Amino acid sequence: MNSRQDDLKRDLDAALQTRKELGKEYEAEIVDSFLTRLDARIDAQVDQRVADRLAQHGVGREGRGGRSWSGPGKLPVISLIMAIPLTGIAAGADLAGIVVCWAGIVGVNVAAALGSRREQQAPRSGRSDWL
């Protein structure tokens, strides 16, 4: 058996021992807890297999040729391109419309920059914060 199967067997044994100690009253909660851990483990394995398969074909977070189509460097360029027609539309109202339009563009770019910085600083772990 590999380590994943050993971990799964240990989790199942722990769930069974807990059920013996607590009785039938807590059986549903124990089963739900075990199934939640099992589901998370399956999701992680599927995600890893998909990432491996995509990496074999040269696709992943970065597109072919190493170019990232979702990286933080693309948002400022896209937002400035979109700013031209948005400014034209907002200019129809008055100066306040232009100010609101550009405040929104700046806000989106600041939020994206802070989000990418937080993502880079966050420690990578195998477990989700939601579990």
Score class of each variant (00 low, 15 high):
Gly58Ser: 08
Leu38Ile: 02
Arg41Asn: 05
Lys24Ser: 12
Asp43Thr: 11
Pro123Gln: 07
Glu29Gln: 12
Ala93Phe: 12
Ser33Trp: 00
Asp94Cys: 05
Asp32Gln: 14
Arg64Cys: 05
Pro72Arg: 08
Asp7Thr: 03
Val110Pro: 02
Arg4Phe: 07
Ala55Glu: 14
Asp94Gly: 13
Tyr26Glu: 09
Gly92Glu: 07
Leu22Phe: 02
Ala83Gly: 14
Gly58Lys: 05
Ala93Lys: 06
Gly97Tyr: 04
Gly115Gln: 09
Ser125Thr: 15
Gly23Asp: 07
Val110Cys: 07
Arg64Gln: 11
Ser116Trp: 05
Ile98Glu: 01
Ala44Pro: 00
Ala103Thr: 14
Gln56Leu: 11
Leu16Trp: 07
Leu22Trp: 01
Val59Thr: 07
Gln48Glu: 15
Asn109Ile: 11
Arg19Val: 00
Ile98Ala: 03
Ile89Ser: 09
Gly73Asp: 11
Arg117Val: 07
Ile81Gln: 08
Gln48Gly: 13
Cys101Arg: 01
Asp32Lys: 14
Val100Leu: 15
Ile98Trp: 01
Leu35Cys: 14
Glu62Thr: 13
Ser33Tyr: 00
Val100Cys: 06
Met82Glu: 10
Val108Ile: 14
Ala28Asp: 14
Gln121Ala: 15
Asp6Gln: 14
Glu25Cys: 00
Leu80Ala: 14
Ile78His: 03
Leu80Gly: 09
Leu114Ile: 07
Leu114Cys: 03
Leu86Asp: 02
Ala96Val: 09
Ile105Asp: 02
Leu86Pro: 01
Trp69Asp: 11
Val100Pro: 00
Asp13Gly: 04
Ala90Phe: 01
Val31Tyr: 05
Ala28Cys: 01
Trp130Tyr: 10
Ala122Asp: 04
Asp13Tyr: 05
Gln121Cys: 01
Glu21Arg: 13
Arg4Gln: 09
Thr36Trp: 02
Ile42Glu: 07
Thr36Leu: 13
Asp11Gly: 10
Leu80His: 05
Met82Thr: 06
Asp129Gln: 06
Arg61Ser: 11
Gln5Cys: 02
Arg127Met: 06
Ala91Asn: 01
Ala103Arg: 04
Gln120Leu: 09
Val50Gln: 06
Ile78Asn: 03
Arg41Cys: 02
Glu29Asn: 08
Asp32Thr: 11
Ala51Thr: 10
Ile78Met: 12
Arg10Asp: 13
Gln56Phe: 04
Glu27Arg: 06
Thr36Met: 11
Arg124Met: 08
Ala83Gln: 07
Glu25Ser: 13
Glu62Gln: 14
Ala111Cys: 03
Asp129Leu: 08
Gln5Glu: 10
Gly97His: 06
Ile105Ala: 15
Ala103Leu: 15
Ala44His: 04
Arg4Lys: 06
Arg19Asn: 06
Ile42Ser: 01
Val110Asn: 06
Val106Cys: 06
Arg61His: 08
Glu119Asn: 12
Ala55Met: 05
Gly66Gln: 07
Glu62Cys: 08
